[in-house]
Computed example of a mutant assay.
Amino acid sequence: MLLVKGIKILLVDDEPNILEFLEMGLENEGFQVFTAQNGMSAVTMVKEHQPHVVILDVMMPGMDGFEVCRMLKKLHNAAIIMLTAKDEVGDRVKGLTLGADDYMVKPFSFEELLARIHARIRNHYPHLLSEVAIGPFRIDDRKLEISYNKQVLDLSPTEYALLKYVVTNHSLVLSKSMILDHVWGYDFGGDDNIVEVYIRSLRDKLNDREHQIIRTRRGAGYWVEIQG
């Protein structure tokens, strides 16, 4: 699990049922949760509570999520995850251009939202995290170490970045292009087969000969099996 004591999340959605469901789930995960049902309330809550993460619905009456996102980024550097009922490229581009950090299409699983929240916290507020424990993995950014079953792995900087990425996003299937962008950078001009080379090396170090830890979904990408 991620150690999240003191981390504040603001939920912004005009549907009470969604707010109640997400609030209950996130509080059970240890977050301090605030809610707002419209854009102006969201702006007020951000000023008052300065949340670390904002989960922001796009389709709201009055001030929509895009306008709220624009205003929030001027007030406070929270990580913003936008929610929409439409899987439109234009909407995603608009939200990201205005400063959103991630984008999810309704309906979505709570587990995926939680994984994306964890990723945003790690990227924005690494100083708040004492340690991340996910299944048999422990990730310590202060020491740049990853342990598996209490054994510290001997990893190069690139192996560390890659394993951290796939483990912390273990509920998602990550394509080669996503891995390249995150680990090697958007301007990487080499062969994408380098991902396979590094995955093979990580499997060797994890003694994962049967590919039961780092799994391959043919034609889609890689994901990590976390039991329990």
Rank of each mutant, 00 (worst) to 15 (best):
L96H: 07
M104G: 03
L129Y: 06
M104S: 01
E111D: 14
A100W: 06
A133G: 02
L113Y: 05
K106E: 09
H127D: 10
F137D: 01
R122F: 05
H118N: 13
F108V: 04
V105F: 03
P107D: 12
Y103N: 03
T97A: 11
R120A: 15
Y103E: 03
S109Y: 09
A133N: 07
A119H: 13
A115R: 14
E112F: 07
I117E: 08
V105M: 03
D102H: 03
Y125V: 07
L113N: 05
F110T: 04
M104R: 02
N123E: 09
L113I: 13
I117R: 12
I121M: 11
F137W: 03
I134W: 04
L114G: 06
L129Q: 05
V105C: 02
P126Y: 07
L114Y: 12
M104Q: 05
L114S: 12
P126W: 05
G99L: 12
H127L: 14
E112N: 10
H124C: 13
L113V: 10
R122Q: 13
S109R: 12
T97G: 07
H127S: 11
Y103V: 12
L128V: 11
N123A: 12
L98H: 07
Y103W: 04
D102G: 07
N123P: 00
N123F: 09
R138V: 06
V132P: 02
V132N: 02
R138W: 00
S109M: 13
L113P: 04
L114A: 07
R122N: 05
I121H: 06
T97Q: 11
E111S: 15
E131F: 03
Y125Q: 05
I134S: 01
Y103D: 02
M104I: 06
A133L: 06
I117S: 10
F137T: 01
S130H: 09
P136G: 02
I117L: 08
N123G: 04
V132G: 01
F137C: 04
R120D: 06
I134H: 04
R138C: 00
T97I: 10
I117T: 13
R116Y: 01
F110D: 07
F110Q: 11
I134F: 06
A119K: 10
F110K: 15
A119T: 12
L98T: 05
A100E: 04
R122A: 08
F110A: 13
R116T: 04
V105N: 00
G99C: 05
P136Q: 03
E111T: 15
H118F: 02
D102M: 11
V105E: 00
E111M: 15
